[in-house]
Design a protein around this nucleic acid. Structure first.
Lengths: 133, 133
DNA sequence: CGGAATCCACTTTGATACTG
DNA sequence: CAGTATCAAAGTGGATTCCG
């Protein structure tokens, strides 16, 4: 045998292939989005109606300008929210959910319901696990 | 007025309060879990039946020992999977889903379905957004 | 075999200052 | 008002080494 790859190289290739697969996996991309701390909070805030940038910043108390802007850009890029600029002085920018965003928010709500229904038993499991160690 | 806090301190307190709220928020804790790259992959792997540690490591090609072990511990701690040690030589360890884990996996599947149904239009939005900038 | 522990590179985040 | 730019701090994951 004259292998073209060492065992280590084969393992490396397998990981690279797996990474490439994950990078284009729809579920993974979605989980990356909603796993992001601020994304779901922005969606929740906008679920009740449009808000200005400063209103969002106030409502989501813990967010920095940088992360809020970044989150809004990502959501806009994915078509989950829309951004409207009113050229006044000073300038006014409103954000609002799109139909796609509302559809995603429905999924997030299901997740929220599952969490609230089951967090009690999960906490109990944690306590028991921790007390054993 | 003789305020006991400066404006900056009040802002800081608001953020601390918000952080404390998020730390105990069930939805946030759940999103932190399933947003983790390897958690969903472990759940998917175990959905078809129990697997040994080494089998999991092989099936999830990209994972390091450290992250696999960490993910398994977290899942076990939450009561989503169970761990069974067979004291032979060498030792054998099997992991399998609990009923709670299967229940959570159902939610993950819903997410997966949403992702697959809507990723096309999201990609289209991204392309259009990027071409404008 | 199934880990635990350590070290380190890299990424992510936040605070701060500045701008159209 | 609604951002952008920059830099330092903190968090995260991986490679490596060692153990029962």
């Amino acid at each position: 045998m004259s292998p073209t790859m060492t065992t280590a190289q084969q393992r490396q290739k397998a990981k690279d292939d797996y990474d490439a697969f994950l990078a284009t996996c729809p579920s993974r991309q979605l989980l990356d989005r909603i796993g992001d701390k601020w994304i779901t909070l922005v969606l929740s805030a906008l679920a009740d109606g449009p808000l200005r940038y400063s209103e969002l910043a106030r409502q989501i108390a813990g967010v920095s300008q940088k992360m809020l802007t970044q989150s809004l850009r990502n959501l806009e890029r994915d078509g989950l929210i829309s951004r409207t600029v009113t050229a006044s002085v000073p300038v006014r920018v409103d954000y609002q959910m799109t139909a796609l965003g509302l559809s995603l928010f429905g999924i997030v709500l299901q997740l929220k319901q599952w969490a609230e229904r089951n967090m009690g038993v999960i906490i109990a499991h944690r306590d028991e696990f921790d007390s054993r160690n």
